[in-house]
Computed example of a mutant assay.
Amino acid sequence: MPTFLSGLPLHPLVVHAVVVLVPAAVLGALAVALWPAARRRWGWPVLVLTALAAVSVPIATSTGEGLEHQLPRTAALAAHAELGDQLLVFVGPLLVTVLGLVLVERWRRAPAGALAPAAHGPARADGPGTARAPRVGAPAARVSLAVLAVLTVLLAGAAAVQVVRIGDSGARAAWGSVQYAPQPRPAGAPQD
């Protein structure tokens, strides 16, 4: 991955994908974990969003590593790089738990035999594979959904905290030595 594009470092540009996609994926993951109606309606779009967030992390890490070799090594830069390398550890498993929630919900909502191919021709109107058939493994599905929901909430929280920590350390690495100095007002400018 190139480090610069037209003389500009790519990392500050690419990192905005992570800054937007990971928190959006966290919010979506929390919604599908805690709200069954959202899981049924928005599960697949949240899964795609979480996958995009997971893909954006190594791209941002790659551009950051390229930029890191172009800058003087400081403790703040080292801390930022170390935190950035850890984000995929949270977003990757978050993707897996969201996938699990979506698949278990699909499995739970499907009539018995609907997800399996029909081996002996069409079923009767009240038999397996019809709307009147009992749900597949309802207790197992409820337990699976509960476990996946708890894991999703924990991973979403950890990913959100990690993104904030990375952003803070990156800002300190880039701007830590810069001090804000109020600028004098131009003559005739209104007072606050």
Rank of each mutant, 00 (worst) to 15 (best):
Leu5His: 15
Ser6Leu: 14
Leu10Trp: 00
Leu10His: 02
Ala17Phe: 05
Val18Gly: 00
Val18Phe: 01
Val19Trp: 04
Val19Pro: 03
Val19Lys: 12
Pro23Ala: 03
Leu27Thr: 13
Ala31Glu: 02
Val32Gln: 01
Val32Thr: 05
Leu34Thr: 14
Ala37Ser: 15
Arg39Asp: 04
Arg39Tyr: 07
Trp42Lys: 08
Pro45Ser: 06
Val46Met: 04
Val46Ile: 09
Val48Phe: 07
Leu49His: 02
Ala51Thr: 12
Val55Gln: 04
Pro58Val: 03
Ser62Val: 03
Pro72Tyr: 10
Pro72Lys: 10
Pro72Gly: 11
Thr74Asn: 06
Ala78Ile: 14
Leu83His: 04
Leu88Met: 09
Leu88Ser: 07
Val89Asn: 13
Val89Ile: 15
Leu95Val: 10
Val96Asn: 15
Val96Asp: 15
Leu99Ala: 15
Val104Gly: 01
Arg106Trp: 09
Arg106Ala: 13
Arg106Leu: 14
Trp107Gly: 03
Arg108Met: 09
Ala118Ser: 11
Ala118Ile: 03
Gly121Trp: 01
Ala123Glu: 04
Ala123Thr: 07
Arg124Gln: 13
Asp126Gly: 14
Asp126Leu: 10
Asp126Asn: 13
Pro128Phe: 10
Arg132Glu: 14
Arg135Ile: 05
Gly137Cys: 09
Ala140Asn: 07
Val147Trp: 06
Gly157Cys: 04
Val164Phe: 08
Arg165Met: 05
Asp168His: 13
Asp168Met: 09
Gly170His: 00
Ala171Gln: 08
Ala171Ile: 09
Arg172Asn: 05
Arg172Met: 06
Trp175Tyr: 14
Gly176Trp: 03
Tyr180Gln: 07
Pro186Ile: 13
Ala189Tyr: 13
Gln191Asn: 11
